[in-house]
Computed example of a mutant assay.
Amino acid sequence: MNKATRQFKFSGMAATQDLSHQITQTALGAAAPDEHYLAPVTVPITITNPGPTRVVGIPQYSPTVVGGTSGYNPPEDCNGNFMSYKFQPHNNCYAYGCNITPNTFPQPGRASGNLITAATLNGPSISHFAEQDGLVYVGTCLGDIKTFAQKRKATSPNDLVGTGALGGHFVALMISPAGDANWPGDYHWARCDDVVNFNSWSQKDGGDQVTNFDFAGNLIQNPAVANWTVNQGPVQPDKSQPDYNPDDLIVEYSFYCYMFVPDSGVKII
């Protein structure tokens, strides 16, 4: 991927300056090295895409917890692991979207042998990697969510999904492609907290706190039209540098699709 000449803030990807979440790599057949900065455990994962096949070590700061709550309830999700008094910095938007805390800053597809590269940091690839982790593609409009939900549970007289067990929840995937000033691109996920009308969503921006507001402070009622704009600050604030540029670098995350996260069968790392 493009090597950034400055520090960026990411929602999904682990920043190059984030030493707490950098993987270690070894040859095929060798054990992942006992090499880490802070994490008490290094989880070995075999990567096949992109080749060559090799073992990588994923720093893990606490055992994985799978959430069992419904609705917007950050203090109770995954035993409170999304909160700052526990493991908030080690769980990103993908962890929150899946309601699973691997405490590894998990990446789509990594548990199934994929590493995201510049060539795969796009909607089709990220959604495909998520499918390999156990998520299910739903569609690109709220009507697709309703249709999908109706197939999984009984509907109410108002043609809305009833209160029966849906057996999972919906998420939305947003993509920010690579762009100016060496911005390498990123992804973001939002989670649906309302299984009846699908008009209440929440999200976790990287290692930040969970919130039900978008990046502009608006309640998230429809992630496809929410504000996912990030000001990364001056392109080059150092006046002594030949590429000095005081203009702000603005990056946009655009809605790509909706997916479904089953209550069981999803594995992320």
Results as ranks from 00 to 15, higher is better:
L166E: 02
G168L: 04
L160N: 12
L166N: 08
G164N: 15
D208W: 06
K151N: 14
A149S: 10
V161A: 14
G162Q: 05
N231S: 11
D193A: 14
R152F: 02
N212E: 09
G162K: 01
L160D: 13
W201I: 04
S156Y: 02
A224P: 03
Q236E: 14
Q221G: 15
L219V: 14
G168E: 04
V195R: 04
Q232M: 07
D186V: 10
V195Q: 13
D180T: 06
A154H: 04
N227G: 01
K146C: 02
R152I: 00
S176I: 10
G185R: 00
A224G: 03
P237K: 10
P234Q: 03
T155Q: 15
V225E: 09
D180W: 00
W228G: 00
T147G: 07
D159S: 13
L142G: 11
L160A: 12
M174L: 14
H188R: 09
V161H: 04
S156W: 03
T163I: 06
V225A: 02
F215A: 12
G217K: 13
S200T: 11
T211D: 04
N231C: 08
V230Q: 13
V196H: 15
L142W: 00
I175S: 04
W228E: 04
T155Y: 06
D194K: 08
I145A: 01
R152A: 04
T140V: 15
D144K: 10
V138D: 04
G143N: 13
Q209E: 12
Q209S: 15
G217P: 14
N218A: 13
L219Y: 09
N218F: 09
N182C: 12
A154P: 05
I175P: 11
D186H: 07
A178D: 12
V171L: 01
G233D: 08
T211C: 01
K153T: 15
D194Q: 11
